[in-house]
Design a protein around this nucleic acid. Sequence first.
DNA 1: GCTCTGACGTCTA
DNA 2: ATAGACGCCAGAG
Length: 108
Amino acid sequence: MTSESRSGAFTTKVCRIVAKCPRGKVVSYGGVAALAGKPRAARAVGAALRDLPDGSPVPWWRVVNSSGAISKRLNHGPLIQRKLLLKEGVKFDRSGRIDWEIFGWNGQ
DNA sequence: GCTCTGACGTCTA
DNA sequence: ATAGACGCCAGAG
């Protein structure tokens, strides 16, 4: 490709998929991994997003865990992600979870 | 080429 | 509902 070689081909693919995620929607790590061709590589997806810089064109905040909630291993704090999602129109329930039926992105 | 780690996922206690 | 353990995959040393 032109210039998508940062680390591994997988990381690049993950970035592309997440970049395709429409605004106001969210996708799970396993979902991105599945779209990448490896439904079991959810951990690898997290590693890819972790490698992204602050001003990256990839909306990493639209990626959440299978519970529809934000992971707590974030380096900048999960509060940042929650705020970004709320700004995009994503609603959280009483348990801090997202309605997968409404905001769930299937990789269209 | 082996080993360790890690923005995960799912099960069982 | 909460906590702990096992499994899976890719990147870095």
